[in-house]
Design a protein around this nucleic acid. Sequence first.
DNA 1: TTTAGCACTCTCCACTTTAGACTGCTAATT
DNA 2: AATTAGCAGTCTAAAGTGGAGAGTGCTAAA
Lengths: 343, 343
Amino acid sequence: MSKAAYKRRDSVLKIIVSEYIATATPVASEAILRHHSLGVSPATIRNDMASLEEEGYIARPYTSSGGVPLDKGYRFYVETISGHAALPGEDQKRIRRLLDTAVDEYDTLLKIAANTMARLVGNVAIVTFPKSAECKFKHIELVEMHQYMAMLVLILSNAVLRRQTLSFDESVRQEQLGEVALKFNREYAAQTRSQIAGKKLELTPLEKKVLGTISDVMASEDAIEYESSYLEGLRLMLGQPEFVQRERMLGILELMEAKGWLRNVIDWQVTEEGVKVIIGEENRETALHGLSLVFSNYGIPEQAQGTIGVIGPKRMDYSRAISAVNYISGLLSELVARVWRND
Amino acid sequence: MSKAAYKRRDSVLKIIVSEYIATATPVASEAILRHHSLGVSPATIRNDMASLEEEGYIARPYTSSGGVPLDKGYRFYVETISGHAALPGEDQKRIRRLLDTAVDEYDTLLKIAANTMARLVGNVAIVTFPKSAECKFKHIELVEMHQYMAMLVLILSNAVLRRQTLSFDESVRQEQLGEVALKFNREYAAQTRSQIAGKKLELTPLEKKVLGTISDVMASEDAIEYESSYLEGLRLMLGQPEFVQRERMLGILELMEAKGWLRNVIDWQVTEEGVKVIIGEENRETALHGLSLVFSNYGIPEQAQGTIGVIGPKRMDYSRAISAVNYISGLLSELVARVWRND
DNA sequence: TTTAGCACTCTCCACTTTAGACTGCTAATT
DNA sequence: AATTAGCAGTCTAAAGTGGAGAGTGCTAAA
């Protein structure tokens, strides 16, 4: 096969993928020529398609139908388009304005980010809270609820807020609680759980109790990976033709309601820069073999990192997804940096 | 029609409903006798069914098929069974143990409650956060993030926690922030937003800024009705045979992803005691006309009330749902009361 | 290497057929 | 007046049929 012929075959593959993404139906040789004149006849395209099939880029649902891309075909497509993608300027502006309105409210901000992205790509969007490797004590507050009970509010350095109630056998007054809080805030500022444990202080029974609770909360925070995250756009994704079979639809719902599924899905170890695309069987989780993922980390490495991404059928608009994830993750990084400037 | 005949007809209706709930297929006259011998022939049952149809309790999908209950039939069924329902002792124990483990962590507690109930009834369960009519200031905390930014943590009397970041034009130190917090905590304890606004104090520019933010947060808290709630068991409900039509499935997903839908669905005005059942077209929201709701309020009236309930197809196990909602709402009330004992 | 031409394959849709499930009605019975 | 047996009649669901149309694979020629 000549060099020019190879090039044409690659074009054919690209057209098949993009056409299939648009129509969700097998792409016929003549359909390819309808929209992109390649200066050759349908028969030539058919030969190319036969060759593409042989090498595992495309497949045909039945003996003589059009071609549909296989994972390898999608992969090729993604490689060739990535880099060129950028969100339209007006979208960028709109999104920036939208997120700016919520910049002071952390949770709302992330929720809006997820929602916006979901609608932008017509699929499921996920945003996790930023998380640091090992959380640090920032501040506690003890508030009396009633005589025998108080609420402990613990603020961690990654701006995570956790609360826990404490019951006492004896009556405790707000003043006492205030003193304990003051002492701990002075002694433990910016320390990790293990550092706090290492510090031997003289403690009253009340203080011991509070310290124990703090330690528990920090431990559970360290253990959590993705518990809290926002997931938006389920209805959009499930409206796609790939989910006409009820089985698939329910499978997805089941997966997403399961606890801790995200941990298996996103390879947390990977801290590479930039947008990553995972296609079909490249997914570790078998339930996701029919889907693709486009995601990126955001935030400040080693300090406060979260993940933002899109999940959709393999037949998703990768160009749009990549540019959306890229832009919004950048935006979030910016906003996170503003809060963390010098922590 | 004799008294005895009326009684039999009621039995027939009850059997039709319960049989339909179990099988999801129209109930034939002979099927009724298969499981419940009423001492009469199928022809008699048929006469009864004709009468039930005439009065709008049941309908037939086509000219000569079995009967399916209409809303009026379900309503009759619910009236006759309610009161007799109680969760099996072992379930009660299991659930109590489960919730006890999370009693100190408010959010987890509610999430577990929702999850448990969803699995108990095989449908969607919803639990909202307790909310009081007008929230009261309990405590604030100001934590320095960096020179020009601080985080405001506001604790309200209903144990709701809200945070917000504050940016300053000038550099601000933690000490200053601490003093502001101390002052506000002293002056504003247990006051509502309007009370705080009415109190005229000498304020520095910094204090004015903080007060403004507090006021904003409390205002938005007062405005929120059901923003935060846990919804579990979508996959269970959507697995039911009523959702084989994709349209319906997507309709439900759309409804549930919409913001503020819950407010329309649950009649918040109703503060009656006990479990309430809403069947099909009794729902205000048209998207829910095919579904039923079983819900109850929990918490302390006027002080901290939330809602817990089940959403499922009209063909749901009402007996189980009513007993589950009843039991779990009672349990939550108990746990809430423990925290609020004398607020 | 590309192309024209044609037989062949397979899907999709509409239509028909058939078996079986239930009822409604009528006339007889209690 | 209420109940029953019996049977004709109605309707569904599933399986089968046939034809149109889309699209390919192959062959032989350019």
